[in-house]
Design a protein around this nucleic acid. Structure first.
Lengths: 223, 223
DNA sequence: ACAAAAGTGTTTCATATACACCCATGC
DNA sequence: GCATGGGTGTATATGAAACACTTTTGT
């Protein structure tokens, strides 16, 4: 589509990729999505989910498309991490890549799609050796996500409409990878006017029953 | 250089640009470097310093090269801000751009080069209207730089080998755009073991004379 | 009665901010 | 002796973290 008579003709061009670091909570562990490459280059090695930017889409759109193709999710939280542009970062050819990270609700993910594209969920504390510059990307992504989860809205994408404070805390703990103090946690929650108590009580989780809450803020996702 | 028989042939390619947001302190004001475009597209409009990534360099290297070509500086602090990839962000042609910001010592900058490339220093509080998505980039860059300047080493690139605490504070205040409390500032400084008093006294700036300090940490720059 | 999860406040600590006067020297 | 910039400490506020017992109810 690019017209070769633009003022920019003669300027080199590059493949531009997107790499997605997709997190989810499975059981009580934070996992991320990898693929084992059954194609060259680096065949047999584990790799992040990636794709190439098309002519008719923005880089952000490409990332969302890749996310969608793999998980069926159209409105998950996704955020840019940065560009990775070393010459030999991809041994196959020169590819400049923009990395994104995302946190999704496991229950909403189309696991058939994931499997059919050879995706596998891997515990973040048991990651295999990864090719390219993916280890750095993952490290960065995890730090940023953990920073965001304590102060942001993004955790509510992983919760049902109504939830107990224990559910909320458990989820945050799984993402953070460490336990949190219950009273301090609830203190912070109570300061957040976007989390409101409902009249309902959940009787599933305990004899006594737990108050159900609702998040009334805007769910953070594609903007 | 890309071999067309790689597994990636057929994938679209893009011009990849770098945009540099170059800050410096002039007199007592924070400035940044702009060019007035005397070429299409957007001729006559102000713009950030930019360039294109070449085949034989990484994206980071391209940014450093652009910085060097414009200022003559080879070892200034520079840091990636992120990728900007909207389809029509550049009205001339599809260009995916990676933005960087940098903070340089005005005295070290080759002002001939700047002028010969039509660069102009502009007070950050008196920026003209800018094309493309440059206003967003600048906003982000300024926030990040101010966050870093208080806790980082980057300010020492703008100071001579030996400096007084007043010089240091003045500089930080200029970058922050607001005054700081002298005693609190010095308290923080004293906690930093990388800033050490020397035996020397500067007699230029005052009758009494001021202790000269030295920064013994690693100067933050290209890594 | 007891098991199991829900709920609830206070103390402590570290960090950030506000604030004003004396010191040394050259003229 | 006075003008100029250099140098110094304490009190308060705010936010983060540590910490343990009572409540409710189904079995």
């Amino acid at each position: 589509m690019t017209i070769e008579t633009t003022p920019y003709s003669g300027i080199p061009r590059f493949h531009v990729g997107v790499d997605c670091i997709i997190f989810t909570v499975i059981g009580d562990r934070l996992n991320l999505l990898l693929v084992r490459r059954d194609f060259e280059p680096e065949k047999g090695k584990w790799s992040l989910i990636g794709g190439f930017v098309n002519e008719n889409e923005s880089v952000d759109q490409a990332a969302k498309r890749v996310l969608y193709e793999l998980t069926g999710i159209t409105n998950g939280f996704i955020r840019q991490l940065g560009a990775f542009g070393e010459i030999n970062r991809d041994p196959g050819a020169r590819v400049i890549s923009v990395a994104y990270f995302s946190l999704l609700n496991y229950a909403e993910i189309n696991q058939e799609e994931v499997k059919s594209l050879k995706g596998e969920w891997v515990d973040v504390d048991r990651l295999p050796a990864l090719g390219f510059d993916h280890p750095v990307m993952i490290q960065n992504a995890m730090e940023q996500m953990r920073k965001k989860i304590l102060s942001g809205h993004l955790v509510f994408n992983l919760l049902p409409e109504l939830f107990t404070l224990t559910q909320l805390q458990n989820l945050v703990e799984k993402v953070m990878g460490r336990p949190l103090d219950k009273r301090n946690f609830r203190k912070r929650i109570m300061e957040n006017t976007e989390i409101v108590a409902t009249e309902y009580i959940d009787k599933e989780s305990s004899r006594r029953g737990a108050r159900l809450y609702r998040f009334i803020g805007e769910r953070q996702s594609y903007k």
